[in-house]
C-alpha cells in the first residue's frame, strides 16, 4: 500500500492507504476526523466538502493518494482557541443548521465562497451552494448566515494571513 503524507489542519500526518481509498475515508477512518461526513456516493451532497490547498473539494471525489503533499483543512480546524470562525458563528446566530449533518460541508463551502467573493448576492450564494444539499433548513437560514458572515468579514480589519 502506498504511503502518503499531507498537512491536515496545520499538522503533518501520514499513513498507508489502498489505491482506492478516498480522501474522505482517510480523514474519517485513519485520522478519526469524523466531522467530515458522507451523505451520498455520487458526489452530489457536499457533506464531505473540505479545503485542499485552499479550495473547496468534495473529499469523496479525491483519492487520498492524490492529496499526497497537500494542505487540507477540515471542519475540525476552523475554530481557533475555542472560538468559532466567523462563518461558524454566523450559522449559530442565524440558525443555519438543524440536524448538523450537512453543516460541516456547508461551512467549508461557504468559507471558500467568501474567499473568492467577499460580497456575494443572495442569488450568488444560492448558486454557489448547488453542490451542497441540506434537507432540514430549506436553505433560508444558511443563505442568511452566509450573507451575514460576508458582511462581518468585510467589516473586519484585514488580518495578515
Amino acid at each position: 500500500m502506498p504511503g502518503i503524507s499531507m498537512t491536515v489542519n496545520g499538522k503533518p500526518v501520514s499513513g498507508e492507504v489502498e489505491g482506492r481509498t478516498l480522501l474522505v475515508q482517510f480523514l474519517r477512518e485513519d485520522l478519526g476526523l469524523t466531522g467530515t461526513h458522507v451523505g451520498c456516493d455520487t458526489s452530489q451532497c457536499g457533506a464531505c466538502t473540505v479545503l485542499v490547498n485552499g479550495e473547496s473539494v468534495k473529499a469523496c471525489t479525491m483519492l487520498a493518494a492524490t492529496a499526497d503533499g497537500a494542505q487540507v483543512r477540515t471542519i475540525e480546524g476552523e475554530a481557533k482557541g475555542g472560538a468559532m470562525s466567523v462563518v461558524q458563528a454566523a450559522f449559530q446566530e442565524h440558525h443555519g443548521l438543524q440536524c448538523g449533518f450537512c453543516t460541516p460541508g456547508m461551512v467549508m463551502s461557504i468559507t471558500d465562497l467568501l474567499r473568492v467573493n467577499a460580497e456575494p448576492s443572495e442569488a450568488q450564494v444560492r448558486e454557489w451552494l448547488k453542490g451542497n444539499i441540506c434537507r432540514c433548513t430549506g436553505y433560508h437560514n444558511i443563505v442568511k448566515a452566509a450573507l451575514a458572515a460576508a458582511a462581518e468579514l468585510r467589516a473586519q480589519p484585514v488580518a495578515a494571513e
Binding site: 467530515t36 458522507v38 475540525e76 475554530a79 450559522f91 446566530e93 448538523g100 449533518f101
Partner: peptide, 19 residues
C-alpha cells in the same frame, strides 16, 4: 435562544452512528 447543540455540529464534534 440560540441552540446549544450547534457548537458541536459546527466544529465537527457531532457524534453520529457512523462516527
Amino acid at each position: 435562544s440560540k441552540r446549544r447543540e450547534d457548537k458541536r455540529f459546527l466544529t465537527g464534534k457531532g457524534r453520529y452512528v457512523d462516527d
